[in-house]
Computed example of a mutant assay.
Amino acid sequence: MVDAADRVRLLRCSFAAAPGGRLLVVGPRTPVTGLSVEACRPTGIGDGTHGIELVDVDGARIADSVFLQLRGATTARAVRVAATSSGVVLEGNDLTGLSSPGEVTDLAGDTVARDNRGA
């Protein structure tokens, strides 16, 4: 979880959830600004969960990351952008490790998604 932070950068890291848990949740209680997640590997994404959840974020870039679902999962998702987030860019990510349609849940009005494989 990332909360109440400014200019957080995650670079070339891997993260996985405990069984039934969530992976990376950003801004669940206090807004986060300037998040960057680059060349990371969210793995073990389970059914009904997202690899990255942007709850309250102002300016985020998720790029060149590889999302992998938990073995046997059928409804795992890559990214959830809540309506309270803005300025989100999703680019160059590999979503082919997810079998469900609609890998990105976008509830914000200004999210930019481009060059994502498997989307």
Results as ranks from 00 to 15, higher is better:
M1R: 06
V2H: 02
V2I: 15
V2L: 14
A5E: 05
D6G: 02
R7F: 13
L10H: 01
L11I: 14
L11V: 15
C13H: 09
S14D: 07
F15R: 12
A16I: 12
A17G: 12
R22I: 11
L23V: 15
V26F: 11
T30P: 00
T30C: 00
P31Q: 13
V32Q: 10
A39H: 15
C40E: 09
G44N: 07
I45P: 05
G46W: 01
G48W: 04
G51D: 06
G51K: 08
D56F: 05
D56Y: 03
D58A: 13
D58T: 12
A60E: 07
A60R: 05
R61M: 02
A63F: 00
A63K: 06
D64T: 11
S65A: 02
F67C: 00
F67E: 01
F67R: 05
L70P: 02
T75P: 03
T75L: 05
R77W: 04
T84N: 05
S85E: 00
G87T: 11
V89W: 07
V89L: 14
L90Y: 01
L90V: 01
L90G: 01
N93V: 02
L95K: 08
L98P: 04
S99L: 06
S100N: 10
E103M: 04
V104N: 03
V104G: 02
T105F: 03
A108K: 09
G109Y: 00
D110F: 14
T111R: 11
T111C: 09
R114V: 08
R114C: 04
R114A: 10
D115T: 10
G118L: 02
